[in-house]
């Protein structure tokens, strides 16, 4: 949703929710907080200023606070500038990255893990292990980075077959890392080798 807004060209997204413990849906605001936190991490990874998203919490009685929040946020977005100013490449590149980020967010891995965050830090995982915030963040950072890269690769391969070298040059991800992702995708039956061009195997999305 948030990423759809950015894809439509908005410069910032302000989300307002209830204060902790005051949610009509009990934990709805906590879950929103987790998801928005993840989305802003994602923005950072694809090179967009993460301050373009803000999650404010207030109760319905705080009129002045509402005005203050909105004013501050608008001011902040004005300072950052129009969407895409932080990326040197053209509009197409911005769209491409946002599409990949959107695919990552909508993928089951991120959705599932982020949905478990509160549980992991409160009552523990399947093994009964509790996670510290640091541990959870460290894991999410890695997962988001992997997911974005994999989605970018998949988007590229949907268009035409490419070699590891070509993907690496296009995405500016080191080629040995691209190779690992490709090998993993091949193993999972998502990607396969199409043909060999000279000394380069070309891969395509299945």
């Amino acid at each position: 949703m948030i990423l759809d807004a950015f894809l439509c060209g908005v410069d910032g997204v302000l989300i307002l929710g209830c204060k902790d413990g005051e949610c009509h849906y009990v934990t709805g605001n906590m879950e929103a907080k987790n998801k928005i936190g993840m989305t802003s991490r994602l923005l950072k990874i694809i090179g967009i200023d993460q301050n373009r998203i803000y999650f404010g919490q207030l109760s319905s009685a705080e009129g002045t606070r509402f005005v203050e929040l909105v004013e501050n946020f608008t001011k902040r977005i004005k300072e950052i500038g129009a969407l895409g100013t932080e990326i040197k490449e053209d509009k197409e590149e911005l769209k491409f990255r946002l599409e990949a980020a959107k695919a990552a967010v909508e993928g089951e891995k991120l959705r599932w893990v982020i949905g478990k965050k509160t549980e992991f830090m409160g009552i523990g995982n399947k093994y009964g292990e509790m996670f510290t915030r640091h541990e959870m963040d460290r894991f999410l950072d890695g997962l988001i980075m992997d997911e974005v890269a994999v989605r970018e690769i998949q988007l590229l391969l949907q268009e035409r077959p490419l070699s590891v070298k070509q993907i690496s040059e296009r995405l500016k991800i080191p080629s040995n890392r691209v190779l690992r992702y490709i090998a993993g995708l091949r193993r999972k039956g998502v990607v396969d080798m199409e043909r060999v061009d000279g000394t380069s195997p070309l891969y395509r999305q299945l």
Partner: peptide
């Protein structure tokens, strides 16, 4: 292969001498 498609954890692959990831 349903499980390996969704597993969110990429680990060092011992069996393949770390040349690839395993989930």
């Amino acid at each position: 292969k349903a499980c390996i498609k969704v597993c969110p954890v990429n680990l060092w692959d011992d069996e393949n001498q770390g040349l690839s990831f395993r989930t």
